[in-house]
Design a protein around this nucleic acid. Structure first.
Lengths: 341, 341
DNA sequence: AGACTGTCTGAAACCGGTTTCATAGCGTGT
DNA sequence: ACACGCTATGAAACCGGTTTCAGACAGTCT
């Protein structure tokens, strides 16, 4: 009963043509106010709702955007990053009247498959791509298919790609500089070489040390893969170097570092300070709560949707470009800020 | 270039009508093998992909299902439950060739709005609904709209609703009975009255105590709202009652309980045992790792998609029904299992 | 042989919108 | 008064499939 009213029916009731109803519906000009009013009344009274399918078949636009998450199961499950990002994108999409379709894949091959399916379906207006590894294997395919897309994170090849990223170099720098300024002398890091973000944070760490004339000893760098366990092992390797502070490249990894330190009977922050990165729920849930670099995930999602929206509308209007969101240091208990002279 | 091949073009190349191509595409009978073969060859060679939009306009089916998450921001952000569920649903949907659209809303009013929009768009074949509160305000609207849907969790009104839930009563029972059997005498609980799952887990706790002839003192029950902070406060209220064990109704809340116990200089499990519920990442990340009731979230997502698929196809074939997934106890360090006689 | 089935196949209608195009109507400048 | 331009409107084409319907053809029954 409810779905039975079509544009044809509305047109008849308002004594106009389908074309006019369509114009009113889409807010196009060239409709006399009186007519417009009459049509709107009929729409209101009948509770007419246009059929989106028909609409998008005709207009060749679906108002659906896809979010492609391609990451190891480790990441998606155990890190709060993707959920937070997904949520913010979903919210921004809803605000813009876009429907968000979700595609999660765990392997690159799987991702390629589903991407092909997605593209060929021709259902989506555009895509937001996130990947935890450096593999931006999708990009050539996307460029070839001429689908609007925005990359979240820094892609390996940048030309022709619009992307949104956090200032990871700045994050690593901020954290490390802060530790130096607090007076720590032996500052280690648990980094990651799993993705561009990890590389950048490490770069920031090194830059801060160098700028302030500190040695940048490779013994003080250990790598993890964003899991708690990997960071636990990394911390164990670092402890013999007797660091008095560590910059850990993600909150989840900080939990692992904390566990290793606890087992070694080292107190945080009295014996060793930690500055983390991300400011996701684990940062406040940890004991002690973590001083951490806040990555504006909500803003990343928002910008991504915003950019994509622009790309979908005015195809060639804005040239491909990278957008880097600034980060910010959130001071909590793990850094021993009290030790300041 | 790639999207240019239409059914019309394929028909011409194969020297048949659109109708025949359509029949081949959909595997309908009444096509001579020779013709079928010829059409398939053309399809293969041209790489033709049917346009889903047109297809679904004509067939009135979209292969898109919606996942509606209506929950306080607290929940969605800070608990791993929804991300895990979303992920499993996304995976199951992909396996069945369904596209998953995501709708997240934070307030009931917002949810109602977006639901109306979703339904009127007529884009979706069916819906999966999750809500953290008891408010199943959507249900009447959904039933009225005659849209196939599956509820995850236990809805307040059950008639006419297909739902998938975990055996929460069994979970509370299992945890509590286990603590009793380990020899603990004063078993408290941090429960939640925020949703049906919380009610059920509390019910299981009470049932276990009653069955084994233990008193069920209301001083030993404190309520939280699934956040760490609420559980921290709840635990503080419980400590004066001198419990020797606590059943905490979610992993995130267990983190809060742990924090309160640490501040009170009570060791886990030596001074007090904890059994948690959910077995999400925080359970293994906690210190000590938590003995917890594993809720099969992956299976819940899978069943939900499965049921919904059935409903979409054979409208009236299966009567509405509840599906309860069993739970399982995962023993880790927080329960002091070593104390067994 | 003629009537009757049953299996293939294509033409055309249809899904419900958007968009193009032709035309009617009106005001304006000369 | 006439040409001109501009706005408002409806008819019809179109998007790319699915589905209905009727007819062609082959095989079977009487």
């Amino acid at each position: 009963m409810s779905g039975k009213i079509t544009i044809q029916r509305v047109a008849e009731l308002a004594n106009v043509s389908k074309a006019t109803v369509s114009r009113v519906l889409n807010g196009y000009p060239h409709v006399r106010p009186a007519l417009r009013e009459r049509v709107q009344t009929v729409i209101r009274e009948t509770g007419y709702q246009p059929n989106n399918i028909a609409r998008l078949l005709a207009s060749e636009r679906s108002s659906i955007i896809g979010l492609v998450i391609s990451a190891g199961a480790r990441m998606v499950f155990n890190d709060a990053y993707f959920p937070a990002l997904t949520e913010s994108i979903s919210k921004s999409a809803a605000d813009k009247g876009l429907i968000l379709a979700l595609f999660v894949s765990y392997t690159e091959a799987q991702g390629q498959n589903s991407l092909s399916a997605i593209l060929s379906a021709g259902l989506l207006d555009g895509l937001i791509i996130t990947a935890d590894n450096k593999g931006d294997a999708f990009i050539p395919q996307l460029l070839a298919a001429d689908v609007p897309f925005v990359f979240i994170g820094r892609p390996g090849r940048v030309d022709g790609v619009t992307y949104v990223d956090a200032d990871n170099v700045g994050g690593g720098y901020l954290a490390t500089a802060y530790l130096i300024d607090l007076g720590y002398r032996r500052i280690a890091t648990i980094a990651s070489d799993q993705n561009a973000a990890g590389d950048d944070r490490l770069l920031g760490y090194r830059r801060a040390l160098k700028e302030r004339g500190r040695p940048c000893d490779s013994d003080m760098v250990a790598f993890g893969d964003y899991t708690l366990e990997s960071a636990y092992r990394a911390m164990k390797r670092l402890i013999p170097q007797k660091p008095d502070a560590v910059f850990v490249a993600s909150d989840t990894m900080s939990l692992g570092a904390l566990r290793a330190l606890r087992e070694a009977d080292l107190r945080v922050p009295q014996d060793i300070a930690i500055v983390s990165h991300d400011d996701l729920p684990p940062a406040t849930q940890a004991d002690p709560p973590l001083t951490t670099v806040r990555q504006p995930i909500g803003q990343a999602g928002h910008s991504a949707v915003e950019r994509l929206g622009e790309m979908i509308l005015g195809a060639a209007s804005t040239p491909p470009q990278g957008f880097i969101n600034p980060v910010e240091l959130i001071v909590r208990a793990s850094c021993g800020a009290a030790q300041l002279p």
